[in-house]
Write a protein that binds this DNA or RNA. Structure first.
Length: 449
RNA sequence: GUGAGUGUAGCUCAGUGGUAGAGCUCCGGAUUGUGGAUCCGGCUGUCGCGGGUUCGAUCCCCGUCACUCACCCCA
């Protein structure tokens, strides 16, 4: 019998869960400080809710659920596991609009499923940590979201991370200015997005292969390469770097796409100095695959990690696909698994996460003493201590060995002598010291230890 | 969907065309009211699965499955 979890799925043992809960706790705390409220939605959605929202590639990766009963044999699917948290949010907003505030700000930490081929930091079941703000077109939303995501990373101990920022409208304008036919915009973006991975020559080759005219491709590449080269000097004065990129974009676009340019300028202007704003970099080559983005787009990068730690953007049309009328929206998703992978590699978890599962272990002396041992455990628990009871009467040495192997700092021993005098022996497994104390004083000794 | 690598004890891994070993873990003992260190002893394998070549395959060949990594795409 093969006992592996299903492909791309994982079991989380206690240490894993403690780490996950720690990170999720930080994320929830930061998001709540920005006024976001929690939301949860079902793992399963009606399949038509999901199809057509993620682009062709995305649709292929949706885990579909076959019809039950009569429809089962036809092999048709009517349900699917959710692919992200954004589309379910859009459905929720459309469904419950009357009960939600005018500006609905929610965060959501739940697993999503993708029928991808697993890889490093990539799984078929993984948690996303989304924050989204619904109902406003103001760029305050973008600025606050970037700031919140940056706060999360800082609180977790990330020092050098980049919040890449771009705008779908500006990208389209650039492609137009370069003379790329509208039908090839998608292909061109896919190729340009790989600039940091395959370099200018690689991108040029791919552009040619995808049928983009050489003249336009050359112009785009030259621009992107010079911006990329300047990134290395951007750390000293990020604001100046971003303004310089904006000015160059302005020149290239020659007055077109003024609305998109205005939005980018607003975001950069609104970033609070000293906070996450110092990590925001305008990056005209950032594209992002999901088809529902309409305005600003973000991606979170850290050094030495292929792929991103998270991403997001503005999607003003998605909710309208469910509701009929348009509702503006913008959000960011953090990838919990990738954060955990990087934090694990860099030893970024606090020491106390590895802490023992209990403060004290109550040993067993004899079968006759079991009821009294359980009573002692109950007394200590009522004092707020975490108490593990060794489940069997066994050699004392074996019980101590077990407590020691579990890193439990204290054990109590009640043998015949203690029982006769109403005393309890408390042993500190760290120092080896032990003392015999009156039963009522055990809790005090343990807390002091 | 494409490509590469790896599948041997609970874990990490050696190894050989004549059906297997180490370290760690685990269990027992030295020490039946005292753990971590040390010493002694012990358990565990359809060598991923199916087929082929061979007198004989864990080893060579083919297929298959799983895992890992990379591409694609993405968090």
């Amino acid at each position: 019998m093969n006992t592996n979890p299903a492909r791309g799925m994982r079991d989380f043992l206690p240490e894993d869960v403690r780490r996950r809960q720690y990170v999720i706790g930080v994320i929830a705390d930061v998001y709540q400080r920005y006024g976001f409220e929690p939301l949860e939605t079902p793992a399963v959605e009606n399949i038509e809710t999901l199809l057509g929202k993620y682009g062709e590639e995305g649709d292929r990766l949706i885990f579909k659920i076959l019809k039950r009963g009569e429809g089962a044999e036809a092999g048709q699917a009517d349900l699917a596991l959710r692919y992200d948290l954004t589309v379910p949010l859009a459905r929720v907003v459309a469904e419950h609009r009357a009960r939600l505030p005018k500006f609905f700000k929610r965060y959501q930490v739940q697993p999503v499923w993708r029928a991808d081929r697993p890889q490093k930091g990539r799984f078929r079941e993984f948690y996303q940590c989304d924050v989204d703000a619904i109902g406003s077109r103001a760029m305050v939303v973008e600025a606050e979201l970037l700031s919140a995501a940056g706060d999360v990373l800082s609180r977790l101990g990330f020092a050098s991370y980049t919040l890449r920022l771009n705008h779908r409208g500006v990208l389209s304008g650039l492609l137009e200015a370069a003379g790329v036919p509208a039908g090839l915009h998608g292909d061109a973006l896919v190729a340009l997005d790989k600039l940091d991975k395959v370099g200018p020559e690689g991108v040029a080759a791919e552009l040619r292969q995808r049928g983009v005219p050489d003249a336009g491709a050359g112009m785009l590449l030259e621009f992107f390469s010079s911006v990329a080269a300047a990134q290395h000097t951007a750390a000293a004065d990020p604001a100046a770097f971003n303004r310089a990129v904006l000015d160059r974009l302005e020149t290239l676009l020659a007055g077109t796409r003024s609305e998109a340019m205005g939005e980018l300028r607003d975001i950069v202007r609104l970033l609070v100095p000293g906070g996450a704003g110092a990590h925001v970099r305008l990056d005209p080559s950032l594209a992002r695959g999901l088809s529902y983005y309409t305005g600003a787009i973000f991606e979170i990068a850290v050094p030495d990690l292929a792929g991103s730690l998270g991403g997001g953007g503005r999607y003003d049309n998605l909710i309208g696909m469910f509701l009929g009328s348009e509702v503006p929206a913008c959000g960011i998703s953090l990838g919990l698994e990738r954060i955990l992978v990087v934090m694990g590699e860099r030893g970024m978890f606090p020491d106390n996460l590895a802490k023992a599962p209990a403060d004290v272990m109550v040993t067993q002396w004899s079968v006759d003493g079991v009821p009294d041992a359980l009573r002692l455990a109950a007394e200590l628990r009522s004092e707020g201590l975490r108490v593990e009871v060794y489940p069997e009467a066994d050699k004392l040495g074996r019980q101590l060995k077990y407590a020691s192997s579990r890193a439990i700092p204290f054990v109590t021993v009640v043998g015949d002598e203690e029982a006769a005098t109403g005393m309890v022996t408390v042993k500190n497994l760290g120092t080896g010291e032990q003392q015999r104390v009156p039963r009522a004083g055990v809790g005090g000794v343990l807390r002091r230890g």
